[in-house]
Simulated scan of single mutants.
Amino acid sequence: MLRAPDVNSSKALVALAGAFTVASLVSTVANRNFWPIASNNMFNAKFGDRLSRFAVEFHLSDGTVVACGPANCIPTQFFRAGAVFADVFMGDEDHPKQVLCQRILRRLRRDRWRSFDEVRAPANLPNVPLSRMEIWVETTVRGMPQEREVVYTYVPSDAQ
């Protein structure tokens, strides 16, 4: 006849902690998000050799070019900024693109934010008129720049 093992609360706690540790390790090694066991790997992703990301260039009327990323243009978490740019600038409609560019310029010129936690500092634009703003998609292969393509160019109405 089978007998139930003697299990007290301390043995149960040790067994539960061991199972949690093993599940967390397996989840991390497999790069799977197994919440609530292992949610720490949600920012740890395996990327292929080819990686594309957005970049922004502000071309000022004096010839200065200020380059930055999406996270320096909108006051949101850096890991969400690229998704916002993809949603707006990869779409077919032109109006949302113009509106976002106008709002970016207004925030950078007048209503700057402070960096905090996962929100990056705003791009520093000198007090010089803007001639155009270009949104780029840059592609790297194994970390080496390969391609750059302008996906949108915004020219303010007051530019010459």
Results as ranks from 00 to 15, higher is better:
residue 1 M to G: 11
residue 2 L to S: 10
residue 4 A to C: 10
residue 5 P to R: 14
residue 5 P to L: 15
residue 6 D to N: 07
residue 6 D to Q: 10
residue 8 N to S: 14
residue 8 N to F: 13
residue 9 S to T: 13
residue 9 S to P: 01
residue 10 S to N: 13
residue 11 K to S: 15
residue 14 V to R: 14
residue 15 A to Y: 07
residue 16 L to F: 14
residue 17 A to N: 12
residue 23 A to V: 11
residue 23 A to G: 14
residue 24 S to N: 11
residue 25 L to Y: 04
residue 28 T to E: 14
residue 31 N to W: 07
residue 31 N to P: 04
residue 34 F to P: 02
residue 36 P to E: 03
residue 37 I to E: 03
residue 38 A to V: 11
residue 38 A to C: 15
residue 39 S to G: 15
residue 41 N to A: 07
residue 41 N to H: 06
residue 43 F to E: 10
residue 44 N to Y: 09
residue 44 N to S: 13
residue 47 F to W: 09
residue 49 D to K: 10
residue 50 R to Y: 13
residue 50 R to P: 09
residue 53 R to K: 15
residue 54 F to L: 06
residue 54 F to H: 13
residue 54 F to E: 02
residue 55 A to G: 05
residue 55 A to S: 07
residue 57 E to N: 15
residue 60 L to K: 01
residue 60 L to D: 09
residue 64 T to A: 11
residue 64 T to R: 02
residue 64 T to D: 08
residue 67 A to G: 03
residue 68 C to W: 05
residue 70 P to D: 02
residue 70 P to K: 07
residue 70 P to A: 08
residue 71 A to H: 07
residue 72 N to M: 03
residue 72 N to L: 03
residue 74 I to C: 03
residue 74 I to F: 09
residue 77 Q to R: 02
residue 83 A to S: 14
residue 87 D to M: 02
residue 88 V to R: 00
residue 92 D to A: 07
residue 95 H to M: 04
residue 95 H to A: 09
residue 97 K to R: 09
residue 97 K to E: 02
residue 97 K to H: 07
residue 97 K to G: 03
residue 98 Q to F: 02
residue 99 V to H: 07
residue 100 L to N: 01
residue 101 C to A: 14
residue 103 R to W: 05
residue 103 R to T: 05
residue 106 R to T: 05
residue 106 R to P: 01
residue 107 R to H: 09
residue 107 R to S: 05
residue 110 R to S: 08
residue 111 D to W: 12
residue 113 W to D: 07
residue 117 D to N: 15
residue 118 E to Y: 13
residue 119 V to W: 14
residue 120 R to L: 12
residue 123 A to M: 06
residue 124 N to S: 13
residue 125 L to R: 13
residue 125 L to D: 07
residue 125 L to M: 09
residue 126 P to Q: 03
residue 126 P to V: 04
residue 129 P to A: 07
residue 129 P to M: 12
residue 130 L to G: 02
residue 135 I to N: 00
residue 136 W to C: 01
residue 138 E to Y: 05
residue 139 T to K: 04
residue 143 G to V: 04
residue 143 G to T: 04
residue 144 M to H: 06
residue 147 E to T: 12
residue 147 E to F: 08
residue 153 T to C: 04
residue 155 V to Y: 01
residue 157 S to M: 07
